[in-house]
Amino acid sequence: MNLSSYILPIFIGLILIIGLIKKVDVFSEFIEGAKENLKVGVEIMPTLIALMTAIGMFKASGGLELITTTVAPIIHKLGFPAECVALALIRPISGSGGLAVFESILNDYGPDSFAGRVASVMMGSTETTFYTIAVYYSVTKVKKTRHTLLCSLSGDLTGFIFSALLVRLFFVI
């Protein structure tokens, strides 16, 4: 049992109850809304294909691994668990990739080890930045995203650094 299994159904139930009380034609409104989002979904497909192909090729070439193993020793000296470097690198790029690395850290070091906790905090407090930016702008005609990526990545970097600091501060290991 977990709390979040309740949130979703109750949220939907409330909307339907209020809708029916206010005499909204809930069925045809649902269809209308679903139809609109179907179109949006098809619009973002090409972006997804392009991004996932590029990222998949990069991962398959071993490039990501090379970067991780090169950078890890330096970062470790700064007090950041080396095991989490791969997570920090892949998290902004790939959702499923991040999940896979997170899973392997929990598996290898345990969820309540220093690395496990830092990885948990990193995973929970950051997003798949590149993907989010690409998908969000793909429904508009915007070509110049200006400082979106710079600001988002600064946020991610802050999140990665603070995840290690906060875990050190709150859990005495």
Binding site: E29, F30, N37, G41, L48, I55
Partner: peptide, 29 residues
Amino acid sequence: EGVNAIELSLYMIGGMCVWGGILKIADKA
């Protein structure tokens, strides 16, 4: 990866349609 992307899109579109529908109801109410 192209196949994976389409697969992911199908999952996402399913969810998006349900939420689009729910939101429309919420909006009208």
